[in-house]
Design a protein around this nucleic acid. Structure first.
Lengths: 341, 341
DNA sequence: CCGGGTTGCTAAACCGCTTCAGTTTTCGGG
DNA sequence: CCCGAAAACTGAAGCGGTTTAGCAACCCGG
């Protein structure tokens, strides 16, 4: 015989199907005594609900959807996503909600997937990452009427929940630290200019440099790849007055930059300080180890999961969660600025 | 009004529900003319099937399950999984099969998830990774009667399909290359001894060293972490007669090892050659760039997806797919052995 | 012109669970 | 001891598809 159904249990216990359903879902309508017998029988028969059948009656699909729009081969270069995923998992699986994951090439494809999944009732909610400056996805999700949480903020995005860390404040703390070390010529190898957090970081650094009286900050946008990170570094270090400190928007680019410094004979940290805006093993295993902003991506993922679950419960009340501002982990790649060039 | 259902289409076209189902699924039972009208209506109404409803009637869930049993925080340290995921996605989404992903702490939990997902009909098939020496999961999956493909081979695993690369041959090619460079004292920083591929690599290297007349090879097992990779390297380089070449079972450990060499003043590649058994940006961005065995993990993922889809079609006939043996990409970390110590 | 096989379609059952309108039982208050 | 309300439970409808049995119309050969 196949998997046991709710009917099998009903027959065995000698009650109706409805009663079994009530008992198994902890709703009123059955006596405690009957409930206990039903639960025992279910346990004994090793029953578990057929997820599809449940989802049919308009109920939850018990799944969340995450679509990542990046060229497939570049994914996983940074540990960021993997950590985020782990955290998401941890948060979701606690309530046995599964994660539907898809990697697509671009935002257009991403939006199509949202449409499809919503129509097919495959998921109960979405998680949006890589928030863009003027993000077309927000409107679509709102139109679909599916709960969602946006990673990256700050502030609400229409009716959607959001979870965010204060990139601005984080960048300011880096600037403060470098200024305190005596650096005046600070450069910035940024990420994709279309991303919201890239813009926030660029602006924060510029503001800080004004306040601290640093020379004009140079922010170079890249596509987050190691190749562009290296290229940007090469160009920065080739300038007549080269920067004494560089902030990188990702760990991969920071490591690539470190390599370029070595290649060009620029000593780290005596001649050049390096700070990565993201932490992972990568920063630890190179020499010198890189000073980095440690945000706990795993916990961030958990937070996102939690927020999504809450939003599912109460779709009418979107959340706005700020996560702790990441702190600087100082390692060997930062030192006081050299007196002369 | 909510999403259109098959009934709406039937009403609109003026046929029965069954006819619509036939038409939409390309089965005989309707005339070409009616079929065309139904398809047009479905298109116009922007209909798509409710996945749960479909899954109910015993049909496919259109999802594959992947459970990874590793401590959540260590996941994503290596790009391997991310690349594999991307490839899987590419392969599965071509036929719009989704991927159910879960990260758990250990094999026991992993097995529980398989049981649950199978009972709940959440997935049509499983993908097993990190094949262990005597793997308890195989028997469980077989007992559950759910199609699956095992990544890591060689050979069939009971009734399950498998996809594998020839680790043995790959390791032999590394040994041959190192021997040709004149290295006689080769060491090996291996991965988890419980994994099948770790054992195969260790054995292959030992066999090769006999054949090539190298000194006894030292294989040090680790947990794949950068910390243990560094520790193993430190211990190897502290020996009275230290190795002139080290092969690492992962890129992360290789980079960590490179760091230790620098820390101990051992010059790479003049005094020590380093080879990584796995390739990624990591190997490219450090200096010197690491010679590595490049397996195309993305394509591997695609292959796994493809194999799973085939197995779903014909569960009775398990596949056994061998992928191309990875090739050595030589960079700057390998050189002829120094004449004297 | 009739019998038998196709073809094209309909109606209804079914998948496993939830939910809701009722019905029966229990129980407390007057 | 009766009445009404609450509690416990039943039975059936419904969710959105697939599938099967059945039926009418048509085609063809003898």
């Amino acid at each position: 015989m196949g998997r046991p159904t709710i009917d099998d249990i009903a027959r065995k216990v000698g009650v109706s199907r409805g009663a079994v359903s009530f008992a198994l879902n902890g709703r009123p309508g059955v006596s405690e005594e009957t409930r206990a017998r039903i639960l025992a029988a279910a346990e004994e028969m090793n029953w578990s609900p057929h997820s599809a059948a449940r989802a049919l009656g308009g109920a939850r699909a018990q799944a969340a959807g995450l679509v990542i729009a990046r060229p497939a081969r570049t994914i996983g270069v940074e540990p960021f996503f993997a950590h985020l995923l782990s955290g998401l998992q941890a948060g979701l699986s606690a309530r046995s909600v599964a994660l539907h994951l898809l990697v697509v090439e671009d935002t257009a494809a991403e939006i199509e997937v949202y449409r499809g999944w919503a129509r097919e009732h495959r998921v109960d909610g979405f998680i949006l990452v890589d928030l863009q400056v003027s993000d077309p996805r927000i409107a679509v999700i709102e139109e679909l009427g599916v709960p969602a949480v946006v990673l990256g903020g700050p502030g609400k995005h229409g009716t959607l929940s959001s979870v965010w860390a204060d990139d601005r404040e984080a960048m300011l703390s880096i600037a403060d630290y470098l200024a305190a070390l005596g650096h005046t010529r600070v450069a910035h190898v940024a990420g994709l200019p279309g991303f919201r957090h890239t813009q926030r970081r660029i602006r924060a650094l510029r503001d800080a440099s004004r306040r601290l009286g640093l020379a004009e900050v140079l922010s170079v946008p890249t596509d987050f790849s190691d190749a562009e990170g290296a290229a940007a570094t090469r160009s920065l270090l080739s300038r007549a007055t080269r920067p004494s400190a560089i902030v990188y928007d990702s760990d991969v680019m920071a490591v690539a930059g470190l390599g370029v410094a070595a290649e060009m004979g620029v000593k780290v940290p005596t001649e050049l300080s390096i700070v990565a805006f993201d932490d992972s093993v990568l920063n630890r295993i190179v020499h010198p180890a890189l000073t980095a902003l440690s945000r706990d991506t795993f916990t961030l993922g958990e937070k996102v999961a939690e927020t999504l679950l809450e939003t599912l419960e109460e779709p009418s009340r979107p959340r706005d969660v700020k996560t702790p501002t990441p702190r600087l982990t100082v390692r060997e790649s930062t030192a006081p600025a050299a007196k002369a060039i």
